[in-house]
């Protein structure tokens, strides 16, 4: 069996790299009976938000997808990306363990099976000027990627701007926008030291990628092959999680070396942002009732 694996991120991105690693290990574990060809950089023409559908319909047998981009089809997949709900590696682990059965059901419903999940580094704010107090948000013209991000920053007092990635660089260069909210990884992918002097480590949102396999493709494997792949996924997932933490540290260091000043978020700022964030949790439960149980269990577990 030869499987194409669709990866929307550039070949240098660590999700693409861990996909390569997974492919190598799968080939070894199945003695070359199952080979995975990683197609990074969106080479197959998939951009990300359609990935759940692409694997469901068998357009690609394997794909890695950002959960937060699939909320148009399955709103529950946005649960871990609620602002300030999940803010540390251990909290990431807790929410993933609690939500995994629900994720599995969703994957099943969409004719696929989750192989493993990997977190993204937290969402920070890259800006041309430093935000020191809550009033500072008013000067931000910030690029956001979806409705939730726009809503959150609008409430913080900033002017959110949704624009395609291709416009972000010229817009930052000429001053149409003066800030972007994204992870340290994407900050490096976009070479943000060219345009922004400050990275505010506010970590307001967590994101996850899941790698899934189409069930029809999966069922073509022998039970031994299936077991071998599941074992590889199980063995590598903790390593990928460690790598994700390392990735954040490395990328922040790289940004810092390139001259981006790291701004630790101060208490007033943090309190202000969290105060705007927590009502979103209940709003989300009202919209997606299935999230209620998971969020309650999670809050009890992490004492939030």
């Amino acid at each position: 069996q030869t499987w194409d694996m669709a990866v929307a991120y550039p070949p240098g991105n660590y999700h693409a790299k861990s996909a390569e690693r997974f492919a190598t290990e799968v080939a070894a574990a199945t003695k070359g009976e199952v080979t995975i060809k990683v197609q990074a950089g969106g080479a197959l023409g998939f951009k990300g938000p359609e990935m759940l559908a692409a694997v469901r319909d068998g357009l690609v047998p394997v794909g890695t997808m950002l959960l937060n981009q699939q909320v148009g089809v399955e709103p529950l997949l946005g649960i871990a990306s609620l602002p300030y709900l999940v803010s540390s590696p251990s909290e990431m682990r807790t929410i993933t363990d609690l939500a995994r059965p629900a994720y599995d059901r969703i994957a099943q419903k969409h004719n696929q099976k989750i192989l493993y999940m990997v977190p993204w580094p937290g969402q920070n704010i890259f800006a041309k000027t430093e935000v020191k107090a809550p009033e500072g948000f008013r000067s931000l013209k910030i690029r956001t990627v979806d409705r939730n991000g726009s809503d959150f920053f609008r409430e913080l007092g900033a002017s959110p701007a949704q624009m395609p990635w291709g416009e972000v660089v010229p817009a930052l260069a000429t001053g149409v926008i003066n800030s972007v909210t994204t992870s340290s990884s994407s900050g490096v992918d976009g070479q943000f030291w060219d345009f922004t002097s400050f990275c505010h480590l506010v970590n307001w949102q967590s994101n996850f990628d899941m790698v899934t396999v189409n069930l029809a493709a999966w069922k073509k494997l022998t039970p031994d092959q299936q077991k071998a792949i599941e074992d590889v996924a199980k063995r590598l997932e903790p390593e990928f999680w460690k790598a994700a933490e390392q990735e954040d540290a490395d990328k922040l260091k790289l940004l810092s070396d390139k001259g981006v000043k790291m701004v630790q978020s101060n208490d007033t700022l943090r309190t202000f942002m969290i105060a705007k964030a927590t009502p979103k949790w209940d709003a989300f439960i009202a919209q997606v009732p299935a999230a209620k149980e998971i969020i309650e269990k999670y809050r009890a577990a992490v004492k939030k």
């Binding site: 291709g166 992918d189 070479q191």
Partner: peptide, 15 residues
Amino acid sequence: SIMIVYGVLAQVSIL
């Protein structure tokens, strides 16, 4: 537009 696509994929400064 081509340079932007290249810059993102090759991780080179678009500027």
